[in-house]
């Protein structure tokens, strides 16, 4: 026998599981992981799984994790783009599971992109290296 509060629990839990299919995507946070051969070889699959488990653990139902193909910068793989509503996308490079956990907490939850993991910082490092 279910009570009304149990009904509400089922609703929330199931919605979390299937919310990929919801059509209102205005508040959606999208994480797109590069999952071409290069990305997978560099370890994109554990990275993607980390995004999923982390979002799941924190109950971030507005986050969808999806995948995309190769964007041409294979040496930076595993890469991921994070889209927050109304903001420009942030591209993270050379990811691992530890970095993903920080991105989810700092960027997705608190809204502060993790500058040191972004593609811009990686490019700067290369530029500095060239000058030396």
């Amino acid at each position: 026998m279910k009570s009304i509060s149990e009904l509400e629990q089922i609703r929330k839990a199931t919605l979390e599981r299937i919310n990929l299919r919801r059509e209102d995507k205005e508040n959606e946070v999208r994480v797109v992981v590069g999952m071409a051969t290069c990305g997978i070889a560099a370890g994109a699959r554990p990275v993607m799984m980390a995004f999923m488990t982390e979002a799941n653990r924190r109950g971030l139902s507005q986050v969808t994790v999806s995948q995309t193909g190769c964007i041409g910068m294979c040496r930076y793989e595993p890469m991921a783009d994070v889209y927050l509503p109304g903001q420009e996308k942030v591209t993270y490079v050379n990811l691992d599971e530890e970095k993903v956990r920080r991105i989810v907490l700092d960027h997705i939850v608190n809204g502060r992109p993790v500058a040191e993991f972004t593609i811009a910082s990686a490019q700067n490092e290369i530029n500095r290296g060239n000058k030396k």
Partner: peptide
Amino acid sequence: MKIYRSHVL
């Protein structure tokens, strides 16, 4: 409850 990254309908 398990979360999937993709659903095939």
